[in-house]
Simulated assay, not measured.
Amino acid sequence: MKNKKYAILSLGLVFLIICIGTSLGSSNINILETASILFNKILKIPLKDGVDTKNISIIWHLRLPRVLLAFIVGGCLATSGAVVQSVLKNQLASPYTLGVSSGTSLGAGLVIITGISIPVIGSFTLPIVGFLFGLATVYSVIAFSSKIDRTMSNNTIILSGIVFSLFVNALLTTLTALFSEDLKSISLWQMGSFAMKGWSYVRLILPFLLVGMIGILRYTKEMDILTLGDEQAKSIGIDVETIKKKLFIYSTVLIGGAISLSGTIGFVDLIAPHLVRKIFGSRHKYVIPMSFVFGGCLMVTTDLIARTIISPSELPVGAVTAIIGAPFFAYVYFKKAR
């Protein structure tokens, strides 16, 4: 009952965060006016008197798609983090451990260096190719782990992910050294940003969101059982290796789509699931959806800081999340050590 109340309050928090995120910027707009515009556009409720038509355009065409994209990306990162931490039974584990970040960065780097553009998808060539490279890297990690260790133990998966990440990062470093004129573009992409990304990007991430979330939510009970240990799960009749593979693939769909559209943004996948478990406990029917909510709110907040703290210039979102996340990571690590 307590968790249900917290979940309802969290939905109110989502709307408040979205209103604040769309209200504040280089030209601040009253939050009540922002709420009126959103209700008008979404629910067709008449606008309150005195709403400036210029503000309608700013809210609907510029800020709202950016805020929604940030929310979905943050939610995807946090949900993926919750899955990986549960499967590997390690609060400090991250989807980046599986190599998805390095794979996506390599794909994006190749597109930036070669300048290729696939005719059908045009400007979305970079995110699509980045996602495919990230997915291929994670699939390679899983295939390699299952070959050398049929039980796919957590240590084997983590070590395999680290090896593949180092190898792919070395390939990217070699490319940037050979094509140093593109170094700035690759570095800016890796820092992460939601600037100048409109409704088309929101629509593009929705298939990744739906496939990943629906796939993961089907296995919340199995994740509860996996936390007891692989041996206990097998004794109950759970196909541990198959479930792990499916969960890793679905979480890669989420994080691969998120990274390919926003760049590399760290620590959200660590912070949000940890906070959710503190509030809602360890049952995954709450951990998964609430990680999405908390991750989305955290990402909108950090993006707001990134674009307002030195306005009219912007900081990379990845830098802001790292400034917040690094001390948090240290706190979790040393608390666990004690």
Results as ranks from 00 to 15, higher is better:
Arg150Gly: 15
Leu171Asn: 04
Ser160Glu: 08
Leu32Ala: 14
Leu304Glu: 09
Ser27Met: 09
Lys234Ser: 15
Ala326Gly: 01
Phe280Arg: 03
Thr220Asn: 08
Lys44Val: 03
Thr302Cys: 13
Pro65Cys: 09
Met196Asp: 15
Ser117Arg: 07
Val138Met: 09
Phe167Asp: 01
Glu33His: 11
Thr104Phe: 03
Lys147Leu: 11
Thr264Cys: 10
Lys44His: 15
Pro312Val: 01
Val287Asn: 08
Pro127Asp: 14
Gly107Glu: 03
Thr174Pro: 00
Ile271Thr: 04
Leu188Tyr: 10
Ser193Arg: 03
Gln190Ala: 13
Phe15Ser: 11
Lys246Met: 03
Thr156Arg: 13
Gln232Cys: 11
Lys336Ser: 15
Ile279Cys: 02
Gln232Leu: 07
Ala136Trp: 00
Ala70Ser: 15
Pro273Ser: 08
Arg63Phe: 04
Gly107Ala: 05
Asn154Ile: 00
Ile18Asn: 14
Ile113Asp: 08
Ala326Trp: 00
Leu68Glu: 14
Phe248Lys: 05
Ile186His: 00
Gly198Phe: 02
Ile279Tyr: 04
Ile158Asp: 06
Leu261Ile: 05
Leu171Ala: 10
Gly212Gln: 11
Lys5Asp: 09
Arg63Glu: 05
Asp239Ala: 09
Cys76Gln: 13
Gln91Trp: 02
Thr34Met: 02
Leu304Asp: 08
Ile249Leu: 11
Met213Asp: 04
Lys245Val: 00
Leu315Gln: 12
Leu275Cys: 13
Ser36Met: 02
Ala78Lys: 12
Ser153Met: 05
Thr242Val: 03
Gly215Gln: 07
Leu228Gln: 12
Pro327His: 00
Thr156Ala: 13
Ala7Ser: 15
Lys54Ala: 15
Ser86Gln: 08
Ser27Asn: 06
Gly296Lys: 11
Lys335Ile: 00
Gly75Lys: 10
Phe280Ala: 06
Tyr219Lys: 06
Arg150Phe: 01
Pro273Ala: 03
Pro273Asn: 09
Ile17Cys: 15
Asp52Lys: 07
Glu33Met: 01
Phe294Gln: 08
Leu178Gln: 07
Lys197Arg: 14
Leu183Met: 11
Ile42Ser: 12
Tyr331Val: 00
Lys89Val: 02
Ala70Leu: 07
Asp230Val: 00
Ile20Val: 15
Lys5His: 02
Gly256Val: 01
Ala195His: 07
Leu209Arg: 05
Met191Asn: 07
Leu11Arg: 03
Val87Leu: 11
Ile249Arg: 09
Leu226Ile: 04
Val120Pro: 00
Lys147Ile: 08
Thr137Leu: 12
Ser251Asn: 13
Lys184Cys: 01
Lys41Cys: 03
Asn169Phe: 10
Ala233Arg: 07
Ser36Trp: 07
